[in-house]
Amino acid sequence: MRIGVLAKAAGVSVPTIRYYESIGLLSAPARQGGQRVYASEDVKALSLIRHCRDLGFSLDEISDILASVQRRSPCSDTKSFAEQHLRSIRRKIAELRSLEATVAALVSGCETTCCGSAAPDCVILQPSQACCR
């Protein structure tokens, strides 16, 4: 199949396919008459890449996952990738919760102390505030 058909079948754009090929995430296809010719395995690979992207895996992590699939590694390897990714997600959530508390405190401080002051005097813009450290 040609690249446009592959893109439609996998739900990605043609430039995305070319990008994945350029970074080695997707193998370069055979060529026929100067045009790329793809197989059904390429649809499967792209679908897996898209699924992993939807789950928030980085391209490097997806590369490791694809290599694991190609080696026919045990499911426990995939589980390890997912556990590692889950830890990363949980760290990000904790960081975002901390950031949320900081910004909420700044907004509250602004409401109680600024009351129409000039923007440069706003508590939100003061890096020395205790809640920002």
Rank of each mutant, 00 (worst) to 15 (best):
S73P: 05
D54G: 11
L55V: 08
A45S: 04
T112S: 13
K92M: 00
K92D: 01
E100R: 13
Y20A: 12
C131I: 09
L99I: 03
S13A: 12
C115R: 08
H51P: 02
H85R: 09
V37W: 07
Q126S: 11
R133E: 05
D60N: 14
E83L: 14
Q84P: 14
E41P: 00
R91A: 00
P120G: 10
A30D: 13
K44F: 05
A105S: 13
I65W: 00
R71K: 12
R72N: 05
A28N: 05
E111G: 02
E100I: 01
S117D: 14
A7L: 09
C132W: 09
A94G: 03
H85P: 06
S22Q: 04
A28W: 04
R91C: 00
S40Q: 04
R97W: 01
R72S: 03
C132N: 05
A30V: 10
S108H: 07
Q70C: 03
C110R: 11
S13R: 10
R72E: 10
S98W: 01
C110Q: 05
A9F: 09
S22K: 10
V69C: 06
T113H: 14
G56I: 15
K79I: 07
I17M: 07
P120S: 05
L26P: 12
D60Q: 07
T102Y: 00
R91W: 00
E41Y: 00
A10C: 08
K44G: 01
I89H: 04
K92H: 00
E61S: 15
Q129E: 02
T78I: 15
A45N: 03
D54N: 03
S63M: 06
K44N: 03
C75V: 06
Q126C: 12
E95N: 03
Y38W: 12
R91I: 00
T102F: 02
R18D: 09
R50D: 06
V103G: 02
E83H: 11
I124S: 08
F57A: 13
V69A: 05
G56C: 08
R53V: 07
Q70H: 14
L59V: 15
D121V: 06
A10G: 07
Q84I: 14
G33I: 15
L125K: 09
A101P: 00
P120C: 10
S128F: 03
L26S: 08
A94H: 00
P29M: 10
R18H: 13
A118H: 02
T113G: 08
A105T: 14
A9W: 09
E95R: 02
